[in-house]
Design a protein around this nucleic acid. Structure first.
Lengths: 154, 154
DNA sequence: TTTATATAGATGCATATGCATGTATGTTTT
DNA sequence: AAAACATACATGCATATGCATCTATATAAA
């Protein structure tokens, strides 16, 4: 009887799905990053931050809220915002409600660059997803990947 | 008539699939990395390299072949191998067939650590994929993500 | 065969990330 | 109100990554 590790083996379909999932997202992200860079535009992470900040409007958004929405570590958010601010696309102003914190707001330059990024970005998504999957398939894909790595609370 | 950018808008299903795909793979990878780190094991990229080197057996494998299989930049491969070698898990020996290159072989320590990583890694996959998707669904997921970001040659 | 060009791999430098910890302010407990 | 604790955010240090370039060898052209 051959020793097969502390767990029973993975089903081949499971393993294949795993490999394909990781590969696909790596391909996809690096593709978008390459195109953005080629167009002299900031990386994808800036887009995600800018769109959140822009959506927060004149009110602005707190870095910790951004951290929650973007699912990145606290120091990651801090430094990402520092870089984006340095580029002039956002402003960080002290928060009047909470002396510990800041409020982040988008600048006109920030709005402009986000607006320039969108057609490039969306075009990538179109090429990578929309041309390869029907809308029905896209929906099926979404509902399947939404089941991956979810924390089951019970 | 409102200007809507240089392209027509993305279908909502496409966009939703995109977002879910990226999020799922980020969750999944960071989950595996966290568990490996918690178990004082090397990162996922080491596993991928080690398994390829191990599969190459006594013959060994050339770094450029690894680069192709792992889909990483040349300098990335070079430095990843340098780190793994420093840890004693692989050996790089000059290639007798090609004076420019090297051949990479796994050491016994390398085999051992890869073997220790596998149950941890596969258990993550099991928790993240197998418990949430039937084998049929896993296969559907694989076939859908395999369509994403593929270069259509015509 | 000498010269040009391509390929394998390494590396200096700038930037990004992870980890731990620091500073400041807010909230809760006693 | 003082002390203890929690939260918001920044940062020093080590490591990792991207980019461009370098060295060495191989292959092709002249």
């Amino acid at each position: 009887m051959v020793y097969r590790g502390m767990t029973t083996d993975l089903n081949p379909n499971t393993m294949a799905a795993w490999v394909s999932l990781i590969r696909a997202s790596e391909r996809a992200v690096s593709q978008v990053e390459a195109v953005l860079k080629y167009q002299n535009l900031p990386p994808l992470s800036w887009y995600d931050a800018l769109i959140e900040v822009e959506k927060s409007g004149a009110t602005g958004v707190r870095p910790y809220e951004l951290r929650e929405r973007l699912l990145m570590p606290q120091y990651g958010t801090s430094r990402l915002l520092a870089r984006i601010e340095k580029a002039g696309y956002i402003q960080r102003v002290p928060c009047s409600m909470d002396g510990r914190g800041h409020v982040v707001k988008i600048t006109n330059e920030g709005k402009a660059v986000r607006k320039r990024m969108w057609p490039i970005y969306s075009n990538c998504i179109k090429n990578m997803v929309e041309t390869n999957l029907t809308h029905l398939q896209a929906d099926a894909l979404r509902s399947l990947v939404d089941c991956v790595a979810v924390d089951k609370i019970r």
